[in-house]
Nucleic acid binder design. Structure first.
Length: 572
RNA sequence: UGGGGAAUCGUCUAACGGCAGGACAACGGAUUCUGAUUCCGUUUAUCUAGGUUCGAAUCCUAGUUCCCCAACCA
């Protein structure tokens, strides 16, 4: 053993694989040291925690490398897109704390350019109008094992294609009658390369361009061009687009062949698509389809139900933007397709709220306690610290009297081994107040404990006995005469199984929501919506911004405190 | 009978030819007026088989397992 080994420096966490690519690009100068990323949602639904990972990744990269990040809506399917979603998405990204500056873009901004590029591709012999039906296209495409066959329309002349495509735009044809297809390779192993359609005829009102168009470009064609137009350098998407990368690169490469003097110049950018593994979390579902069923079939109260891992739901539940960002940083970025343990998310919000949330006392399942040696009508006001980690937040006066409530969980008539809360003949400390000892138990006809009689040691005011004796347990309490009733919603994980499958509706956690009326210290009835509090020994709560009324907050449990006693108890 | 990807503690994730590290979880202990927080400690990992090398998670070969792709969705 070395006599004086230097303290080991914690090793640096290396860059993730995307940062490694960027740093290499910066080193070689391919993009002149520029880093431009984008977050490109389709405005057809609400964002969830998985999108949050992508938002943090893209905006985080822009920030880290002194570049920028664009907000871009991939709005090429007018059937499913609505301005309402644009607004909610923008609000969610802002809430997470990110800023796109002047770079709010829409793929629909590029419709005219996209159209011209398509005409140029036709002129280059790289695109043709196909008049097969959707079923026929699918049939001609072959399958994984069988190569496709050329469309009978594949050899139309440039002039015919151009005329047809212009007529498509002009609205001469019916919906679905023709498509514009790329001419690539019907026998390619990658089915995305088997002459993919890039334009379809669809008479639908677009949320931004209205009725200006009756043909709309498809994703694979639109996305790469949009990236190139905006000067995106690193186009980051999820793993399921890996097989699309060949198409992405093909389109941009072909565009480079547009001759000088054409009606459009090729876009200057040469973005590269990089795929990462999307977020999966235990005890939840992430697919839009499943989330939709939860909402539509009434298993939750809406997209912003605090049990939903939508950003709107997280926000209402009381997660903080910082906790979501920290979570994203914690889980890292790789190409592995793997689930993250829900406890990592829960831990991230505990960590944030532990540092910031002021403390308060409330009893969720009240059990009355009468102090037999405390005069009725006598009221004391004891000092409680607002935040043990932040003494500068000071103390507050909390009323104390003869009749109190404690939590039913904090009393056991026959205490199990290791229980150091209240029990007949046992003494505990009421947090910040006095020591009490249980002397009698009152039960109802059914044998249920309904009231406790205790004695109080008035010399223990402030929570320290004069004679120096110690108690093992400290429990929370509230004065019955001063307590206010507050609504508390005790949220828990939405699913009771780690990996909900297709029978997810049968795997819902029946206890994901428990509504109680708690007895709380008076200040909790005055809290403004949107404020956080730690109910000591219970958990972190958030005054619901939607359901709270002035003077009547509704408290959402964000997450419980860690509870090693309940674990101990389970072990027996 | 195609194409594209991925395999490191229980779970995520580092190490890029040179001590397998961190976080979460679990377990034990210390401190504590929150059975919280904090602190300390413990257990547990390189998919398999060959090869190259003084030395392999890392390079090579062969295999295994898992994920994605056959919308006029994104």
């Amino acid at each position: 053993m070395k006599a004086s080994a230097p303290a080991a420096e914690p090793r640096e966490q290396g860059p993730n694989f995307i940062e490694a690519i960027i740093e290499e690009d910066n080193r070689t100068g391919v993009y002149g040291g520029q880093v431009v990323t984008r977050f490109p949602p389709e405005p057809n639904g609400y964002l969830h925690i998985g999108h949050a990972k992508s938002i943090c990744l893209n905006f985080g990269l822009g920030l880290k490398y002194g570049g920028r990040t664009h907000m871009r809506f991939d709005d090429t399917n007018p059937l499913t897109e609505e301005p309402e979603f644009v607004e909610s998405i923008l609000g969610d990204v802002r809430w997470l704390g990110f800023d796109w500056g002047t770079h709010l873009h829409y793929a629909s901004d590029y419709f005219e350019q996209l159209y011209r590029f398509a005409e140029e591709l036709i002129k280059l012999g790289r695109a043709y109008v196909c008049s097969l039906t959707a079923e026929q296209i699918s049939e001609y495409r072959g399958d994984f094992f069988k190569p496709g066959r050329d469309s009978p329309f594949r050899q139309r002349s440039v002039d015919e294609n151009l005329a047809l495509f212009r007529d498509m735009r002009a609205g001469i044809f019916q919906d679905g009658q023709h498509t514009l297809r790329l001419k690539i390779d019907m026998s390619a192993g990658n089915p995305n390369l088997r002459d993919p359609p890039i334009y379809r005829i669809r008479r639908a009102r677009h949320h931004r361009t209205g009725d200006a168009w009756c043909i709309y470009p498809l994703y694979d064609y639109t996305h790469c061009i949009s990236d190139a137009i905006e000067g995106i350098t690193h186009s980051i998407c999820t793993l399921e687009f890996e097989a699309h990368r060949a198409l992405y690169d093909w389109v941009l490469a072909e565009l480079k062949n547009i001759p000088p003097g054409a009606s459009v110049a090729p876009p200057r950018g040469s973005p590269k698509q990089i795929e990462f593994g999307r977020l999966n979390l235990t005890y939840t579902v992430m697919s839009k389809r499943k989330l939709l069923r939860l909402v539509n079939e009434g298993h939750v109260e809406g997209w912003d139900d605090p049990r939903m891992l939508t950003i709107a739901g997280l926000r209402r539940r009381g997660f903080t933007p910082a906790s979501v960002r920290n979570f994203a940083a914690l889980i890292g970025v790789t190409k592995n397709d793997a689930p993250i343990d829900m406890s990592v998310l829960e831990n991230a919000v505990r960590e944030d709220l532990n540092a910031s949330a002021p403390r308060a006392l409330a009893v969720l399942r009240p059990l009355k306690v009468v102090l037999e040696n405390w005069p009725a009508g006598d009221v004391d006001h004891v000092d409680l610290v607002n935040h043990p980690l932040k003494p500068e937040l000071g103390t507050r006066k909390v009323p104390f009297g003869r009749e109190l409530y404690i939590d039913a969980e904090d009393f056991e008539e026959q205490p199990p081994k290791g229980f150091f809360r209240l029990a007949p003949g046992k003494e505990v400390r009421l947090r910040g107040a006095y020591f009490i000892t249980c002397t009698a138990v009152k039960k109802d006809a059914g044998g249920k404990v309904v009231e406790l009689t205790c004695t109080v040691d008035r010399d223990s005011r402030g929570g320290e006995a004069k004679d120096g004796r110690k108690v093992k347990g400290t429990i929370h309490w509230v004065s019955a005469a001063h307590a206010v009733d507050v609504r508390a919603r005790l949220y828990d994980r939405l699913f009771s199984v780690e990996n909900p499958d297709d029978t997810f509706l049968e795997q819902l956690n029946p206890h994901s929501l428990d509504v109680v009326v708690a007895k709380a210290e008076p200040s909790l009835a005055q809290a403004a919506p949107g404020t956080h509090v730690q109910l000591e020994r219970v958990g972190y709560f958030f005054a619901d911004p939607k359901d709270s009324k002035p003077g009547a907050p509704v408290w959402n449990r964000v997450v419980g405190l860690k509870d090693s006693w309940s674990k101990e108890k389970k072990k027996g």
